[in-house]
Design a protein around this nucleic acid. Sequence first.
DNA 1: TGTCCACTGGAAGGGAGGGCTT
DNA 2: AAGCCCTCCCTTCCAGTGGACA
Length: 412
Amino acid sequence: MERNIFEKILGQESLFIDRRAFDHAFEPDKLPHRGGEVDALVRNLVDALNGHIPSNMLLYGVPGSGKTVVTRYVLSQLLDKGEELGEPVFSYEINCRNIDTKYRVVQNIASQLSQRGDAPIPFTGWPTDRVLDTLVKRMDREGGVHIIVLDEIDNLVARAGDGILYNLTNLNTILKSSRCCIIGISNDLHFTQHLGPRVSSRLSQEDLVFHPYGAAQIQDILEDRAKTGLRQNSIGNGVIELCSALAASEHGDARRALDLLRISVQKADQEGHELVSPPHVRLAQSQLEYDQVTPVLRTLPLHQKLVLFSIKLNEENGLRNISTGEVFRTYSDACLKISVEPLTPRRISSLLNELDTLGLIMARNVSKGRGGRSKQVNSAVPRGIDVISTLSDSEALVAQASEEKYALQSRL
DNA sequence: TGTCCACTGGAAGGGAGGGCTT
DNA sequence: AAGCCCTCCCTTCCAGTGGACA
């Protein structure tokens, strides 16, 4: 009889003991090389246990420099201690990449505070002030200290302005039987420039900068995780060093290093090797690039696809550093070919900025004197990924285009 | 030194879509 | 059903800009 198709893999020996050690959300027992940052947070947040209001804080640092993990680590201990001392502490972690409007932020926190019998707050429909009102009532009902962590706060400010931060930093003047503290986490050191002076001074009462990890520090982190998550003696010479060096060369991102090591181990597992070696890391590196980019390419909205397609098409024809105007002309032609109404040049300019933020293109502003000021655009998709076929082969593009046409026709 | 180009990017607002309240 | 509210995607308008060139 045929064996079950899962049996072969299930029975296979793996180099992993605990895969979770490589999760981004994994909370290790100790945080190497972040003692100073932990201390700074603890010194401030201890006020929550003394009946005072902790200062609002802003944590800065490049991605993967430990901001989020340090905050979680400190907060989980704070919550435990609060419970022990009978000083209730509540914490809310909001990722402002997804939750990026005033309404959604307030709705999210208030919903986390809902009890049985509370009316659910819809994800749209209520006036924001009403949601804010509900939040204040619920916070006061619970009492204690409420710590609101706004991860990627720069994204929230870019999308929704600083109005929400004004409301949140103002909460303590409205709250009667509870207190509130904001911790903002940002990748962008200069994001407070986009804040009004009142919000800025209230929010950044204490700033903390997380410096990128160096290769040696990343190495320590990887060694710790390998001890927890992998079988003994499963890592070959130079593997951890290579992972650390690759991640350190990309602005010291510890998450990237963990991903690299995890995928390297998977590769060794797949090949049935007992030992992970540097070639596995190289394989992991290219897979990581591929895995990061292709889903983004596939899920781009139609017009962004067409813009990127136009840039790539120019590059295939040997044209690099093309201007916004050139992109727009190629893009308009592409639209014509698939009978889609092109967007305006102004919109294309914004789409170029969005593609730049996504890291799919490199755009920089240049002035050519009488030739005018414009962007100089190049694709930034790693080599080895065939953008044009990923974008144009996909039936999705055709489907998207006809959907667009249908929507247009039904409007006319 | 002023002009001019080809844009940039902020601001305001339209309109469709999803949802709540009365 | 009508009146609101919020979000998203987009357009329109326009002041501002860096630097080559006359």
